[in-house]
């Protein structure tokens, strides 16, 4: 039985596929950033006053900001390196047959994993001396170095969990086969277990790196001359013109996006690849 109607409420309901409210992708980010950066210049050009347009100001400062960004990358890579080395050891501690070792590694891991990164950064900043003297030799501890140490603490804790999780995700049959072939525990770990874990650890490790890179701007709060600090200085050197805010911070966003997005894409690719193989 059907009858004609113009009333939409009377029409049969065809369920539509739920669509995300906003479908944003990489290709939307570029025009959005472009509007942020260029938009104010256009508005400004219409006024036609004879001082530099925001875009021209940004162009003047861009080399310095880029240098600042490179410093962020140096901080992120160093903190990642240090944190990974320490975290790998801590992670191995978490799977140690020694109970005390396991317990203390677990505690340290949980402690630093559940601490705000900024608080850890402040701790590193204000608890570490500005220099240490070994045998009369004074080694300075500059702020950026303390920032690296401070940021490497949460990295360490997260890497520790990544290692533990990867080792535990292997079937116990791998340990048993190795045991029954008279491998020592150490050999089992290094020849059989860990080589299989590398693949599983890589995607979460890269994720962590992207998060760390974005977190390096926290160092601006403790006075390290990274990109956010320099942006702030540039803006105040330009007299705090409000129309400069969007282009300048838009530029910083674009830098981080251009660096972190490919890492995220690559991580997803790896995850897919490995989930098919294993």
């Amino acid at each position: 039985m059907t009858y004609k109607t113009d009333l939409p409420v009377m029409l049969p309901v065809t369920p539509r596929e739920a669509e995300p409210f906003l479908r944003l992708s990489l290709w939307h980010a570029i025009p959005i950033a472009a509007v942020c950066i260029v938009g104010p210049s256009l508005a400004f050009a219409a006024d036609g006053i004879a001082i530099l347009s925001p875009l021209a100001v940004l162009a003047n400062w861009a080399p310095l900001l880029l240098k600042g960004f490179v410093f962020n990358l140096v901080i992120s890579i160093s903190a990642m390196g240090l944190g990974t080395a320490a975290g790998a050891m801590l992670g191995l501690g978490q799977i140690s047959p020694n109970r005390a070792m396991r317990g203390s590694s677990w505690f340290v891991t949980q402690f630093f994993r559940n601490a705000p990164w900024l608080v850890l950064l402040f701790f590193a900043m204000f608890l570490l001396p500005f220099e240490i003297s070994i045998l009369g030799l004074k080694i300075p501890f500059p702020d950026w170095f303390k920032a690296i140490l401070g940021l490497s603490l949460p990295v360490m804790a997260n890497v520790s969990e990544i290692v533990r999780g990867a080792v535990n995700s292997l079937p116990s049959g791998q340990w048993e086969a190795a045991e029954s072939l008279a491998y020592t525990r150490r050999q089992t770990l290094w020849l059989i277990i860990l080589p299989q874990c590398v693949k599983r650890m890589l995607p979460p490790w890269m994720n962590l790196y992207a998060i760390l890179t974005m977190a390096t701007v926290l160092a601006s709060i403790v006075g390290v001359s990274e990109v956010m600090t320099l942006t702030g200085r540039a803006l105040s050197a330009e007299g705090g013109r409000p129309e400069l805010l969007a282009p300048f911070y838009g530029f910083v966003l674009l830098l981080f996006f251009a660096y972190c997005y490919p890492i995220a894409r690559f991580t997803v690719r790896l995850e897919k690849k490995f989930s098919v193989i294993t």
Binding site: G173, E176, A177
Partner: peptide, 13 residues
């Protein structure tokens, strides 16, 4: 003493 398991447990790598 050698041992062979139901699930083979070869080292996949």
């Amino acid at each position: 003493v050698g041992m062979v398991f139901q699930q083979y447990n070869l080292f996949p790598h």
